[in-house]
Simulated scan of single mutants.
Amino acid sequence: MKILVTGAAGFIGSHLCEKLLQDPRHEVIGLDAFVQQSPTPVKVREYNLRFLLPQDRFTFINQDLLQVPWDEVLPGVDIVYHLAGMPGVRSSWGADFKLYITHNIEATQRLLEDCSKHPVTKFVYASTSSVYGEKTDQVNEIATTEPLSPYGVSKLTGEQLCNVYARHAGLPIVIMRFFTVYGPRQRPDMAFHRFISHIRQGKPIPIHGDGLQTRDFTYVADCVEAVAAAVYAENIIGETINIGGKERASVLDCIAILEELFAKKIDRKFMSKASGEPRHTWADISKAQRLLDYQPKTDLRSGLHAEMMDLFKTPFLFL
């Protein structure tokens, strides 16, 4: 099976490539543009690739998706995982939204257009819980989509483009909506990475709002287990699937766990609520359980400990 993964040097993408390569039947092409404006610095992306580049069944392409000669890359590819994009809710406001248009909308449309000319068996689009907006209860895939941020709008537009190409060109689309993925190699701009970095540096943890907002935290190994299962899963074409975690918690709950792990009291710095972020997220993962045999295994304490230990081994990642 020949598999293309865009965003291969990113947090989730690099883990996914490693998971796919555990199957000796797979050959993986990883593509990443090393976008300079991304919240993940180039040195972090290079670090993420350290286990992949030496592998014989892995080929890396460092190129912008809008510049890739797809007619040379796509022939022979069975499955496309499209994880590349510009992440981040808070940075999507203002003039920087043009980056989200380029990397989340234009690049997705270009890839879909070229995939429509080549016979892939599945096109898996990585979306986000941000498309749902503010919901108070557990959310399933038929819930209304009402994004609160330009980032959420850009990812929902990507979903709609996928659906358009499914109808127009018969592309075998699968959409997966990720809920707050964390763990080793988490992006430096994400909450747990920032929390751990601040604690190591003796700085108070910045908390937007009252800290009682909750998230459905998904450990990265659980997430890629579900994503990789799509390779051989049947009856998933045309489906939208939530990928959530084992444990839901508030920001203050997470800080309490970090206090246990660091064995010390952690200072907090409360700040104004961040624009565009929902107060609560909570995934109904029953469809993933049914279609992908998905069962998240990692509890929040174990996952935070794993992320903390990974950062301790790589002090240059404290940004």
Rank of each mutant, 00 (worst) to 15 (best):
V80M: 00
F123V: 03
V77R: 02
E141M: 07
V131D: 08
D114H: 09
R90L: 13
D78F: 03
Q138K: 08
G133K: 03
Y132E: 08
V131W: 02
G133Y: 06
I79Q: 01
F97Q: 03
H118D: 08
Y125T: 02
Y100W: 10
S130D: 09
D137W: 11
T128E: 06
T102Q: 11
G85V: 05
A126Y: 07
I79T: 03
K98D: 06
S116R: 11
T102Y: 12
N140K: 15
L83M: 14
G88F: 01
S129W: 07
W93N: 15
I142S: 15
S130H: 09
I79L: 12
Y100R: 01
K117T: 09
L112M: 10
T128H: 05
L99S: 08
C115T: 07
G94C: 13
H82R: 03
G76A: 09
H118A: 08
F123D: 01
K135P: 04
V124E: 00
D96A: 15
I101F: 11
E113K: 11
E134N: 12
F123A: 00
D96P: 10
V77G: 00
T128G: 02
V139H: 05
V80S: 01
V131K: 05
T136D: 09
C115L: 10
A84W: 00
S91P: 06
K98E: 13
H118Y: 15
C115K: 10
Y100N: 05
D78E: 08
N140T: 15
G133S: 03
R110I: 06
W93T: 15
H118M: 07
T128A: 07
S127F: 08
P119Q: 10
N104Y: 09
T136G: 11
H103M: 09
P87A: 11
I142T: 15
S91Y: 08
Y132Q: 06
M86I: 01
A95I: 04
